[in-house]
Amino acid sequence: MIRAAVLASVFVALTGISAARAAEGDDATLRKDVKTLIEMVQDLQRRVSALEAHDARPAPNATVAPSVVPPAPDATVAPPVARSAPSAAQAAPQAAPIAAARPGTNLDYVSPEALLKERWNQIDSGMDEAAIKALIGAASTTFVLDGRLVWYYYYPGTGRGSVFFTDAGRVSSYQSPFPGFGW
């Protein structure tokens, strides 16, 4: 809902300003305004992402992107663990494929990858399942390895990560999907 409202506002502003400037026939001014608007949109995107990241409460009617891996049962995927399997209503924010980064002219712009990476970096041992879900979203799939619950995340084009939980539902350890040499 937040995203929809913001986008609607931006669209109205963009349409009105563009029409006025076009009437004046001032191309240079028009280009300048477009540039300003692009920066405004990027800034709004950043703010929306920040709001979503800090909104830890589940949103029953949230319009989230589909999961990377459909939750439908699959013969090759172990069934989700009953006590921890995320439901659709609990799946916001969603661990969905991240959008391609688009460098902007606004130096404050933060790419979706960077935001996601930052969220993974906030994982700490001892956090509970709800906190993990609020931080990085629902897992692509969940399974049990040697008796340990694992939330497994798959980001096409980016990588794979996992969070391991104790029997008490607390984070035991995790592997970020953002590998690389240096950090």
Binding site: L145, V150, Y154, R160, G161, S162, S173, Y174, Q175
Partner: peptide
């Protein structure tokens, strides 16, 4: 890094 699984796996 390859599997995305934590060490304890």
């Amino acid at each position: 890094r390859q599997t995305g699984l934590a060490c304890e796996a």
